[in-house]
Design a protein around this nucleic acid. Structure first.
Length: 176
DNA sequence: AGGACAACGGTCT
DNA sequence: AGACCGTTGTCCT
């Protein structure tokens, strides 16, 4: 009986594996990532580490968050210097998942629009909601939400500031 | 070209 | 139920 209880607690603890995080400079500014079992849960461009921690805690809905700066720097460097594509660990509503999926189909250097994405997932009228779902993209850069522009040619928004969006697009040779 | 505005749909509180 | 939004098409000046 006692044994059973401990097994269950152990399994629960293992099931909620801890998420590690850390930050480093990147070609596009200060960058933080959260990862678990070598899968990347989130990549963001916050102001500082404190904002990163808050964002991760809320977004990933966990209190098991531990700093691992060395590994974070290693992953960030690999991503930006050697275009390493880590596996992603994504969680979202079906609507969000389908949109994040669609975003990943857009090759570097190409752009799309909020309404095109809406059409692509079969909800042509959900344009506004597509905007918010794109804004909720947990993995910036790797899931290229920066490649989405307004249909009138405008920049649209960017969760981490338009300056970074612009930088990302310029680096891909997109002209605006 | 650019501003105001209503309609839209998913998500959060 | 209501408010919030990384939008868009339309109707103006």
């Amino acid at each position: 009986m006692k044994y059973k209880l401990f097994t269950i607690l152990y399994i629960l603890k293992m099931n909620q594996n801890t998420i590690f995080y850390g930050s480093s400079e990147s070609p596009f500014g200060f960058c933080s990532i959260a990862f678990s079992n070598s899968k990347v849960c989130s990549l963001i461009f916050p102001e500082n580490e404190e904002e990163a921690q808050k964002d991760f805690r809320r977004r990933l809905n966990t209190d098991k968050l531990e700093k691992n700066e060395a590994e974070a720097i290693r992953i960030i460097t690999a991503i930006f210097q050697y275009s390493y594509r880590p596996e992603l660990d994504l969680h979202g509503t079906p609507f969000q998942m389908s949109i994040w999926e669609a975003l990943q189909q857009i090759p570097a250097g190409k752009t799309s629009t909020y309404s095109e994405i809406a059409a692509a997932i079969g909800r042509p009228k959900a344009v506004r909601a597509v905007g918010t779902a794109i804004g909720a993209n947990p993995v910036a850069y790797l899931i290229p939400c920066h490649r989405i522009l307004r249909s009138d040619g405008g920049m649209g928004g960017y969760r981490w500031g338009l300056a970074i969006k612009k930088k990302l697009l310029e680096a891909e040779g997109v002209k605006m």
